[in-house]
């Protein structure tokens, strides 16, 4: 494993370009930066995040769960309230809406944790190489 560290984006990107130009395949390069450097993501051809699938699944689950919970509980013991129908969809929509957002957000968070491989016990327990630097790691064969 080869490691290059920099204090600024300029030399970091320069080195990255150089590495790619010299034919190092992107699969063997890993970079760590203190803030997102979009040029580096482009250079490394980082695929578009699959997080949206998690988000969509969560939100859809929340939406359905909201209606399911409200309609099930209203019909399981039908009680009349102020002349309103047992299944009163407008108020139930509010619950469905809130649950859409809640489960959407929670699923996004969980999806993120999974995709970004955090929490990473290894990096919690041991110190991280070149923490806070613009770093390039090249995996050696």
């Amino acid at each position: 494993m080869k490691r290059f560290t920099f204090d600024d984006t300029e030399p970091f990107l320069a080195k990255l370009r150089e590495l790619l130009a010299t034919g190092t395949p992107v699969e063997r390069i890993e970079v760590a930066t203190p803030f997102p450097v979009h040029e580096a993501l482009l250079l490394l051809k980082t695929p578009v995040s699959r997080l949206k699938f998690f988000t969509f699944t969560g939100a859809l689950t929340g939406f359905c769960a909201g209606f399911a919970l409200t309609i099930y509980s209203a019909t399981s013991w039908p009680m009349s309230h102020g002349g309103k129908p047992i299944v009163s969809l407008p108020p139930f929509m509010i619950i469905a809406f809130e649950l859409t957002i809640l489960l959407g957000a929670v699923a996004s968070l969980l999806g993120f944790l999974y995709l970004a491989r955090v929490p990473a016990p290894k990096y919690i327990l041991t110190s991280i190489e070149a923490d806070g630097k613009f770093a390039i790691f090249v995996e050696e064969l």
Partner: peptide, 16 residues
Amino acid sequence: IGWRGTAKQWSHYEKL
């Protein structure tokens, strides 16, 4: 939680 700021992590992060 062991955040390193790799390119992959940042791409998911920004999406999130």
